[in-house]
Computed example of a mutant assay.
Amino acid sequence: MDCTYCGCAVEAHDPVYLSTTPDGDPASQFCNYGCLAAHVDAADLATGTACNWSPAE
């Protein structure tokens, strides 16, 4: 399988697999956490998200 971010073969590295389904089938795969982090930054996936939220804040 190829890395979702850089296109390299994930098996040649320390792969990270992500699943959006309860059965755990990989939806995305990355060479390592570096490619995952770069993908999140490049796709602006963290914008507008929050770990903690309160209407008073």
Results as ranks from 00 to 15, higher is better:
55 P>A: 15
24 G>R: 07
46 A>W: 07
28 S>I: 01
37 A>C: 03
21 T>R: 10
41 D>M: 12
3 C>S: 08
3 C>R: 05
27 A>Q: 10
54 S>I: 01
40 V>Y: 06
18 L>R: 08
47 T>M: 04
5 Y>R: 12
51 C>N: 10
18 L>H: 01
19 S>F: 09
35 C>H: 06
3 C>M: 07
41 D>G: 02
33 Y>G: 04
34 G>Y: 11
23 D>Y: 04
57 E>W: 08
40 V>S: 02
17 Y>P: 00
14 D>I: 04
46 A>M: 10
54 S>N: 13
28 S>D: 06
36 L>M: 14
33 Y>E: 10
30 F>K: 01
7 G>S: 06
56 A>Q: 11
40 V>G: 00
45 L>A: 14
35 C>G: 03
10 V>C: 03
49 T>F: 04
12 A>D: 13
48 G>E: 10
1 M>I: 05
53 W>G: 05
39 H>L: 01
46 A>F: 09
1 M>L: 10
8 C>E: 15
25 D>K: 13
25 D>A: 13
51 C>K: 13
22 P>F: 12
39 H>Q: 02
16 V>Y: 04
42 A>E: 15
41 D>C: 07
8 C>R: 14
57 E>H: 07
12 A>R: 10
16 V>K: 09
13 H>Q: 06
4 T>C: 01
45 L>V: 07
18 L>D: 00
34 G>T: 15
35 C>W: 08
30 F>P: 00
36 L>I: 07
25 D>P: 00
51 C>T: 14
11 E>W: 03
12 A>G: 04
16 V>H: 04
45 L>I: 07
4 T>F: 06
37 A>M: 07
12 A>F: 03
38 A>P: 00
43 A>L: 10
45 L>R: 15
26 P>Y: 13
6 C>K: 09
8 C>L: 12
6 C>E: 05
24 G>N: 05
56 A>D: 13
46 A>R: 13
26 P>N: 11
38 A>M: 13
17 Y>M: 09
50 A>T: 10
3 C>P: 01
41 D>F: 11
34 G>Q: 14
56 A>H: 10
52 N>M: 11
25 D>Q: 12
30 F>S: 02
51 C>S: 13
9 A>K: 15
38 A>W: 07
18 L>S: 01
5 Y>C: 03
54 S>C: 08
27 A>I: 04
17 Y>L: 15
2 D>H: 04
4 T>E: 10
41 D>Q: 14
41 D>S: 14
16 V>C: 01
17 Y>H: 10
35 C>Q: 04
47 T>N: 08
6 C>Y: 06
28 S>K: 12
40 V>A: 08
8 C>A: 15
26 P>G: 11
